[in-house]
Nucleic acid binder design. Sequence first.
DNA 1: ACCTGAACACCGTTCAAGT
DNA 2: ACCTGAACACCGTTCAAGT
Lengths: 206, 206
Amino acid sequence: MGRRADHSRDELFEMALSAAREIAEEDGLGGLTARRIAAKIGYSAGTLYNLFDDLDDLIVHLNGRTLDSLYEALATAPGDNDPEADLLALAQGYIAFTRANAKLWNLLFEHHRPGERLLPDWHHQKIGRLLGLMDECLVPFFGPGREAERNHTARVLWSSLHGMCLLQTEKKLILDEPIEAMATSLVKYYLAGLRTSTAESAGGKT
Amino acid sequence: MGRRADHSRDELFEMALSAAREIAEEDGLGGLTARRIAAKIGYSAGTLYNLFDDLDDLIVHLNGRTLDSLYEALATAPGDNDPEADLLALAQGYIAFTRANAKLWNLLFEHHRPGERLLPDWHHQKIGRLLGLMDECLVPFFGPGREAERNHTARVLWSSLHGMCLLQTEKKLILDEPIEAMATSLVKYYLAGLRTSTAESAGGKT
DNA sequence: ACCTGAACACCGTTCAAGT
DNA sequence: ACCTGAACACCGTTCAAGT
């Protein structure tokens, strides 16, 4: 046997990721095997190892694509300079994405790298970009010189929202209330609490 | 070969779960194989299938034990009738448990049941009991007739806390701030927001 | 009744051999 | 240079056979 060159390396890379995405959308992580991906693109399993370090590497790349999709879905949000309204819209957009792409979004957290392998830098950057969307919403809320507080708030809201979506899709906690309402409550009251605290400390100093 | 009766069925059950726990504490889900658990207790892999439906069932039982440990660790908290202080203590206790038992706590969420198998009722009850601890803290905060709001608040706080711990231990989001501080901020401001809103609506009606 | 060991149908991954 | 197919070292799970 030998080279076929039916497809360029880049084409093969995309074909493999597409096949993996389709399998994941159908059967989740459980159905995502090297042999099945290879069969779906008409190559032998060995060829995948020419494109990726291993199956873990392939899945991390697939997850990168999912993060890109999520960013595109959220970046188009309006943004009318009212932090609370913007955050509520962002949260609902995030929840909608996890509902519409449940299997792919789950793969982001269902997959665990072997050993102590950490995620590549580009992966963390894609996550940071998402966090940045939340951070931007908060700009009007925190004046200049309060960037640290703003970042902190964005991280608290992001992880909290994440927890709700995860417990929901993994069915680990029976939530008899739609997470949309929970997320709204979180954003509304957490921001209200921050506002009160800020007003008090400002009032105390002035 | 045949019966040995070195150990009763119940003893074998406990031995298998203990062996599995030790393996999970060392190597996580990746090292948790039926063959390895069996070898550790000196029986063949087939014997495990006399005790559990399959490996998934064994892991669900192990996870049940972890939920019990977590409950014991949290149920002993003081409780001085100040909702905010109690909730802060509960949150810190939860975070401390996830740090002290990182691998076991991770197993609760790293493991996914095959197919569409749902968690058994007793598992959901153990989770419900934990959520109940948070709910109890909120009793002095919500007067009689406001049970629904109280449950809602407990669920929002629980899932949010969960999200922080998960993103931290899975290293999916770089949090350059200890989650203890994030959890404190969440509890403090979310409750403050609730208080404000309650006062406003009460003031409007009175 | 209980336990074993072999067997089955899978994995991920490697690599000599072919074009 | 690329691709294959066989091979290796694993899995989870089953079950006839033994005590």
